[in-house]
Amino acid sequence: MEKFYKLLGIDENATDSQVKAAYIAMKNKYDPGSYEKEDLIRHAEEKTEQITQAFDEIMNSRRMARMKNGEPVADDSDAYDGANSAEASDDYGYIEQLIESDDLDAAEESLDAMPQNLRTANWFYLKGLIFFKKGWLEEATEFFSASCKMDPKNITYKRALEQAIWQRSGNFGNPNGKDSYQSMAGCAPGCDLCNLCGAFVCADCCFRCMGGSYTRC
């Protein structure tokens, strides 16, 4: 079970809606439709399968646990967060679908129509996501940061913000570097000044063994 949680990048104490949010975010990330290279598509498809499996396993096991404890089991797992937010998260599901299908205008319209008191951290995250997809990177960063302030524990919001900060400070790819496409063109790996000096010292040592020296000392 632990590996499923790891796959979605959340810990076992996450609420159902957090699991769902992480699942949707991961699914978006590995959407095979947004890749073109064949090996990337294959990788994305594998990942999507794994993620879906992990999500199903987690949700099923939670449902089973609840049945054992005699709690009511509803079809919609979001119902556990209280009536109000359940209503809101239903809307979010619809909006997430709109964002996924790149219907950004419609998604933004539905988000803006939501009353102020229902605007949760997820609202701010989704708004940020719309701006991000539109290419409005400044606004996106602000909304991601707002969602993180409202819900600092949520890993999806945190990741989005961390990536924005990482790229804004002049880096490419992701801060954890695992899935990044970091490929600095033309530059040999580790070809920086420190390595250059190190290599020079090494070369000098070898040269000295043979009786010569690059340096005068």
């Binding site: 960063t141 790229q167 804004r168 400070s169 490419f172």
Partner: peptide
């Protein structure tokens, strides 16, 4: 910061 973000994207 904006320039960096745009280039990274």
């Amino acid at each position: 910061l904006s320039l960096n973000f745009s280039i990274a994207q």
